[in-house]
Nucleic acid binder design. Structure first.
Length: 653
DNA sequence: GGGACCTGGGTAC
DNA sequence: TTCCAGTACCCAGGTCCC
């Protein structure tokens, strides 16, 4: 599916006067296969009218303002580059880079890009031929995945909200997505592709790249004939049409496959002159990686609209963008890449209901855990994604030192991240796991990892950990949460009495809720204690279980009451009933503090880290140690890698 | 100074 | 009347720690 099928954006550059929709630039009106003859102004007006005043629209305005600000800064930067000698300096750098890329250019390959035509919609039409001549969209009232060509005549297209599509085309028929069906047909197409290139590269369910250099030579036929044959075989196997492009590299092949869509093909000769002619007028938006924002920046700051402009202005780009990201695209063979992350997210009607949030987290944790289990993955970094009622997206991440997979572990950490953000009104919650282990068995492969055992002297059987995997001290590595300094080795190794272990148990469990099992401590009793408190949901009194050892239980008839159901009776801090975890941690703190005071002569060093921990917690669990300051960069944001352009616009061509 | 980490953002499909 | 997805990758730039 084409990259232009995306959401709309406000334009910064036009002043629209009495026709405000004209400034609501939307790619919905971009020329696209099947959309010839669409009344673009009407579509633009409808989209604007349906959007204006909404929170989504306001958020778009906010983003637009940010981009405009960035553009202004970059214009100022550009103005400072006027001195001839400065620009010539960057021109030399750019020329050198281009020459390097030219030297490694390979024009001997023939890459074929196949793109199925309106794939989801076409599959649905196969199942229900009556849809063939009626406007139809696959998706929901919230979002459309793809639209058939009848619907496109009205301006309906992929990534358009369904309610806007309904306004454009009241007759529109919605068909829910059925990925099982699409996967089946995708498999059929891939069987065909395999006959031409066993190592073909599937880009998505409906797109693939094939290196047809060898098969053309072996069979002694032209790339045009072979492409025609392949498309016919895809049709025979599936009943679906596709479009294709052939070029010396994948990037260009993809551009070519879009030219004669639907059910067509375009071939670009492996000839430098022909290629240079082809790209001279090629809009930069056609280059993979250049989206609407980058396009706008390049146009508004540098007046760059085509790939030729790009090369001509290379000195500016070299001066203002970071020289990184070499090697994007290219004529290389596709390489197998390992998965970097796995995620799921769900959108719902904006709400502040914390019980609902928790339920969503439970669902997401279970889904994510199941997905990870299928691929035998264990991850270390958990990222919570939130979209507020005003469409602002926030992420909060947590990197553990131990790999996790279970829904229980995921939920535990996700809940902690979410609670730090409460109260909040949300319309989306997502969870992403990344930083996967190599061996996929959940073991920790980092030998430098610090665990409790690292702190224990050989032979110190007072800290005989049974369950190192769940040692809570590992979670101290959650650097955004706890930045206290670990106690010195020699002091830690002196841990040798029950009271100290109780303090450790309480303080650590307060952080993450795990259980440390000790050979001397009554671990089961402690576990029961914490679980009971959680089940109560609301802490009003702390009581140790009956089977607690005498040496510890003597300390622990501590009482903490939430006055008027929200105020701590010990220090007066206010925590509403919904802050369950925070309340538990707060109570733990007071308990541990009291115990520490009682035992201060022997183990006073513990006070500092514990208090530090509580300060961190009270400051907010989800706050990053790397919390961003307002950006003051001259470019005020992301640098666009100049080599990305050179690589794609020159090396790849 | 560099690596690890966190956060926001852009992009593709 | 209201309504704008889900998955995955990559990058820049910030802080913190060694």
């Amino acid at each position: 599916m084409a990259k232009s099928e995306e959401t709309s954006s406000l334009s910064s550059s036009s002043s629209s006067g009495g026709r405000p929709w004209e400034s609501y630039h939307t790619v919905y009106t971009n020329a696209k296969a099947g959309m010839e003859g669409v009344d673009k102004e009407k579509v633009q007006r409808v989209v604007y009218e349906m959007s204006k005043g909404s929170k989504y629209f306001q958020n778009e305005q906010r983003k637009e303002a940010y981009i405009n600000h960035k553009i202004q800064n970059m214009r100022a930067q550009r103005a400072n580059l006027n001195p001839t000698h400065l620009l010539s300096h960057y021109q030399r750098i750019a020329d050198k880079r281009i020459a390097e890329l030219e030297a490694t250019r390979d024009l001997t390959r023939k890459w074929l890009h196949v793109d199925m035509d309106a794939f989801y919609a076409a599959v649905e039409t196969l199942s229900n031929p009556s849809l063939k001549s009626r406007p139809m969209a696959v998706g929901t009232i919230s979002m459309i995945s793809t639209a058939n060509y009848e619907a496109r005549k009205f301006g309906v297209r992929a990534a358009m909200p369904g309610f806007i599509a309904c306004k454009l085309c009241p007759e529109l028929i919605f068909v829910p997505t059925d990925f099982k069906k699409y996967t089946h047909y995708s498999d059929l197409t891939r069987k065909v592709f395999q006959e031409y290139d066993p190592n073909f590269m599937a880009a998505s369910l409906d797109e693939a790249y094939l290196d047809i250099t060898s098969v053309c030579k072996e069979r002694g036929i032209s790339d045009a004939e072979l492409t025609e044959e392949l498309r016919q075989n895809v049709y025979k196997a599936t009943g679906l049409t596709c479009s294709a492009g052939v070029a010396p590299n994948r990037l260009l092949a993809k551009v070519c496959s879009d030219i004669n869509k639907p059910n067509g093909q375009f071939l670009l000769p492996n000839d430098r002159a022909a290629i240079m002619t082809f790209i001279s007028s090629l809009p930069i938006r056609k280059i993979g990686g250049i989206g609407k924002v980058t396009e706008q920046i390049l146009k508004d700051v540098f007046e760059i609209k085509t790939c030729e402009d790009l090369l001509q202005k290379s000195s500016f780009l070299c001066a203002l963008f970071s020289p990184s990201s070499a090697g994007l695209g290219g004529t290389d063979a596709p390489q197998v890449r390992s998965r970097k992350s796995m995620s799921n997210e769900r959108t719902f009607s904006a709400t502040k209901d914390e019980t609902f949030f928790h339920q969503k987290l439970v669902e997401l944790s279970e889904m994510l855990s199941a997905d990870m289990e299928k691929e035998r993955l264990h991850g270390r970094t958990l990222t919570l994604k939130l979209k507020t009622a005003s469409f602002e997206v926030k992420t909060r991440a947590l990197t553990l030192q131990s790999y996790i997979q279970s829904s229980k572990d995921i939920l535990k950490h996700a809940s902690k991240l979410l609670k730090a953000e409460l109260p909040v009104s949300l319309r989306l919650i997502g969870l992403r796991m990344s930083h996967f282990n190599e061996d996929k068995d959940g073991t920790v492969s980092d030998p430098t990892q610090r665990t409790l055992l690292n702190y224990i002297k050989p032979g110190d059987d007072n800290m005989n950990l049974v369950d190192e995997e769940h040692s809570d001290l590992k979670d101290n590595s959650e650097s955004h949460c706890y930045t206290y300094t670990d106690p010195p080795l020699d002091l830690l190794s002196e841990l040798n009495d029950h009271s100290e272990q109780v303090v450790e148990q309480i303080s650590e469990s307060a952080q993450v809720g795990n259980t440390v099992k000790s050979s001397e401590f009554d671990a089961q009793g402690t576990e029961t204690y914490f679980l009971e408190r959680r089940n109560q949901g609301q802490l009003t009194m702390i009581d140790f279980p009956e089977n607690e050892t005498e040496s510890t239980s003597s300390h622990h008839k501590e009482v903490l009451i939430w006055l008027e159901d929200y105020k701590c009776s010990v220090c007066g801090v206010e925590l509403p009933p919904s802050f369950l975890e925070e309340r538990q941690e707060h109570a733990d703190f007071h308990l541990a503090e009291k115990m520490q005071m009682e035992e201060e002569s022997a183990h006073s060093y513990r006070n500092l880290p514990l208090k530090n921990r509580m300060r961190q917690k009270e400051a907010g669990v989800g706050q990053s140690k790397g919390k961003k300051k307002p950006k003051h960069s001259p470019l005020n944001g992301k640098h666009i890698p100049i080599d990305a352009f050179f690589t794609k616009a020159s090396h790849n061509l």
